[in-house]
Write a protein that binds this DNA or RNA. Structure first.
Length: 786
DNA sequence: ATAGGGTTAG
């Protein structure tokens, strides 16, 4: 009855507060009455006839003053009208004041304000007013209840939602169609699908929207069979699914990662005679993109053009996104250029699409253009461009853009932080990482699994594995990625014991490991020399866990066996591999051969590598080093000649190999020590950074040579770590380490120095800008500098 | 019912 009327009213556009207008009896005389009112508002009648829609704020204030002056605030009827005037102008503080002054507020007073707050999404205020109303002994009606429920779903506050449900039961409104459907939506929003389902069963009138919401809810949780079940149930109970129901199903499957289901439903819908609209298209296209089904994508694009829905902004950005995922960079730009009006969503899709296809610089240029044109860049725009940088090795740029974003006054969210954190980890700027962590704690987004996993990874890469563990332990929910991140952290730090613990804890808690988990555990075993255990895990992969053994696992095993000196075994494993071995696998063998100076196998590996990666100078250097160790100087010259004829020079990568060899020499006393290989790997990581950064220090690099004005620029980047490591490498074992000035010591550098101190059994004292770091027996103590 | 941005290994 009333609710139906209300619904019809609310659908009218340009009518912000439908009820308030409706409640005024003399609609036609509003304008006239209000103009008269200013001149002579002494009569209560003119106040009464003041329209809540057309009256200005100053008129409302005048009326307020009049009421106070004349002591009319005991007239509940008048004060309630004033309340609606203020509410209409969104002056909630004034409205509250009026409400407090009413001696006997009635249901009408409260509902007036509740409607206004609900319309403007002031959910906390709605609930506050609702509870104040209850405290007054006033029972809500079927108009207030749905607004209270809506507030609970807006806040995702299940507890409050259940309480309101209880009140609805007491008041006998739970079977009311409007109250009921709002409760169903609330339960779906809070993920309580069983409750929603139960309630739906009790409803005498069944509406297609509530059914659709439940279907989408099941689909979003990836509960395929239940979603389909509700679909059938709906039909059996006499409600035919409409386009909305289908769209919900398609969008839900897509969100839960059931991409092929999503596309399948789209096709089914089409075959049943439904005409896909813009929403259907923009719901199915991400799934098509994730499946990289270009054929299907092109067909849908054709349909879009035929039906003329290519003006829909969502459809355009979904098309750009789909072509980006299908690696069609030419199509991305075409669709974008054909767009009539520049839309921020499409711009964001373009940036992501370009960066996904390796066109990072283009993505950055495009972003700069949008910014220059004065486009209204939102969180997604900034997050997209930060992600493009951090995913493509442009870590410094990512941090710079983050700073720029903050200057622009755009607040980061729970997606921005996981995009930024890998950049912090990659260059080990603990300071920035910690700042992001603090932000997550303050804004409450630390409970997000993506944020948590990224924090674990960042701390591990900054050399703070304990902090990683703390983040891990404090996560309210964990998924596969969280487990893998902490596992990778322990592997990175050479903590095989902890890695094994995590690996078993993970399975014990019901989380199945995947191929990444195995890469981590194999790497951990390999770094700690746990050959047999590594082999055990490797063998259990397909046998016990049903996980396909990939190329990278073979590469791990070659490294594992190679480090243990079992080079023949490593070689036979390569020969037995079901795949054609790639550069990583042969590279692992060649590196192991260099460690053990095995010439025969080294030659075999090098031969393959020369074919697979002819332009990688590192392979030539490794082989020549093996020859050199055997005193085969003619062979050394031959390899050098090969390099020369190929035009390969000792690039930074080459000098890096020299550094690596220097570490070998430094640690020559304990070649087989498990931790040594970890250092080599750490150095490899640094080498990668060196290559990426385009900044190539030579082995005798000293920071003191740098011009004063450039120093700060270099120091805030990653070169500091390299400088420290190079500095260390240039000293003879046993000699005191010279104190370096104005360096910040963090992350990888910390790890490397710690291990060097451990192996050489010497004390190292380094100073930061304001702290000292004392390394002894692999333990570092920090303190404020004298 | 409604896009667009996301974490882990190598």
């Amino acid at each position: 009855m009333w609710s139906k009327r209300f619904k019809a009213r609310s659908k009218r556009k340009n009518c912000k507060l439908p009820y308030l207008g409706m409640l005024t009896s003399q609609r036609t005389s509003h304008v006239k009455a209000s103009s008269v009112f200013v001149r002579n508002f002494n009569t209560t009648n003119s106040l009464n006839s003041l329209s809540s829609i057309t009256a200005s704020l100053s008129q409302a204030r005048q009326a307020h003053a009049h009421i106070l002056k004349t002591g009319l605030h005991f007239e509940t009827h008048l004060t309630t009208r004033l309340l609606s005037l203020y509410a209409n102008h969104l002056c909630f503080a004034d409205a509250d004041l009026v409400l407090d002054s009413i001696t006997e507020p009635n249901l009408f007073s409260f509902s007036t304000l509740i409607y206004a707050c609900s319309k403007t999404n002031r959910f906390n205020q709605v609930l506050g007013l609702f509870s104040r109303m209850l405290c007054r002994g006033l029972f809500p009606d079927d108009r207030v209840l749905p607004n209270a429920v809506k507030a609970c779903s807006g806040l995702s506050n299940l507890g409050a939602g259940r309480q309101v449900h209880g009140i609805a039961l007491v008041c006998g409104f739970d079977a009311d169609s409007y109250v009921g459907s709002s409760l169903i939506h609330m339960y779906v929003k809070c993920g309580q699908l069983k409750d929603a389902h139960k309630l739906l069963g009790k409803m005498p009138e069944l509406d297609v929207v509530s059914w659709s919401a439940l279907i989408a809810g099941y689909a979003r949780q990836g509960r395929v069979s239940e979603a389909k079940g509700v679909f059938d149930e709906m039909r059996n109970r006499g409600t035919e699914p409409n386009l909305v129901s289908w769209n919900g199903l398609i969008a839900g499957f897509n969100q839960s990662g059931c991409y092929s289901e999503s596309v399948l439903m789209f096709q089914k819908m089409y075959l049943q005679g439904f005409k896909p609209d813009g929403t259907s298209i923009s719901s199915v296209l991400p799934a098509v993109g994730n499946l990289e089904d270009l054929n299907m994508g092109v067909q849908i694009h054709g349909y879009v053009i035929k039906e003329g829905i290519n003006l829909d902004k969502c459809v355009v950005s979904a098309l750009i996104d789909m072509y980006g995922k299908c690696a069609c960079s030419s199509e991305i730009s075409r669709v974008f250029d054909e767009m009539e009006q520049l839309d921020i969503g499409a711009c964001n899709a373009l940036v992501t699409g370009l960066s996904r296809n390796g066109l990072v610089d283009e993505a950055l240029t495009v972003f700069r253009q949008f910014k220059g044109k004065g486009m209204d860049l939102n969180v997604v725009s900034w997050t997209s461009v930060i992600a493009s940088c951090s995913q493509n090795g442009k870590d410094m740029e990512a941090l710079d853009l983050f700073r720029e974003m903050q200057i622009a006054g755009v607040k980061p969210n729970s997606v921005t932080i996981p995009c930024l954190l890998p950049a912090c980890g990659n260059i080990a700027t603990l300071m920035h990482g910690k700042a992001a962590h603090c932000f997550s704690l303050r804004s409450g987004i630390f409970i997000d699994v993506y944020v948590g996993s990224a924090l674990i990874d960042m701390y591990a890469k900054c050399g703070r594995i304990q902090s990683s563990r703390i983040c891990f332990d404090r996560m309210p929910t964990r998924n596969l990625v969280c487990w893998n991140a902490i596992l990778a952290g322990y592997a990175m730090h050479g903590k095989a014991k902890e890695a094994k613990e995590i690996f078993h804890l993970m399975q014990w808690s019901g989380q199945k490991p995947d191929f990444i988990s195995f890469t981590c555990i194999l790497a951990a075993c390999s770094q700690s020399g746990l050959t047999e255990e590594g082999q055990y895990y490797f063998n259990s992969m397909s046998r016990e866990h049903g996980i396909e053994v990939r190329m990278e696992h073979y590469a791990c095993m070659v490294t594992l066996l190679g480090r243990a000196g079992k080079l023949e075994e490593a070689y036979s494993m390569i020969k037995e591999m079901p795949y054609e071995p790639d550069g990583c696998v042969w590279g692992a063998l060649l590196s192991s051969c260099r460690v053990h100076n095995n010439m025969t196998l080294g030659q075999i590996a090098a031969k393959q590598l020369f074919k697979l990666e002819p332009a990688n100078p590192g392979n030539y250097i490794l082989l020549s080093n093996i020859y050199a160790s055997k005193g085969k100087w003619e062979e050394v010259d031959k390899v050098r000649g090969m390099m020369k004829s190929l035009g390969l020079r000792k690039n930074p990568g080459c000098s890096w190999i020299e550094v690596k060899n220097k570490v070998h020499m430094l640690l020559a006393g304990d070649k087989s020590h498990p931790q040594m290989t970890l250092i080599i790997e750490k150095l490899d990581q640094l080498g990668m950074e060196m290559k990426r950064s385009g900044y190539f220090p030579s082995t005798d690099f000293v920071l003191q040579d740098v011009e004063e004005q450039d120093k700060e620029q270099i120091l805030c980047g990653h070169s500091e770590k390299l400088a420290v490591v190079f500095g260390l490498l240039n000293t003879r074992p046993g000699s005191p380490i010279r104190v370096m000035k104005n360096l910040r010591i963090c992350g990888d550098c910390h790890v490397v120095i710690k291990f060097i101190s451990h192996f050489e059994g010497r004390e190292i004292l380094l100073r930061d800008t304001n702290r000292f770091h004392h390394f002894k027996d692999g333990v570092c103590s920090c303190g404020d500098f004298w």
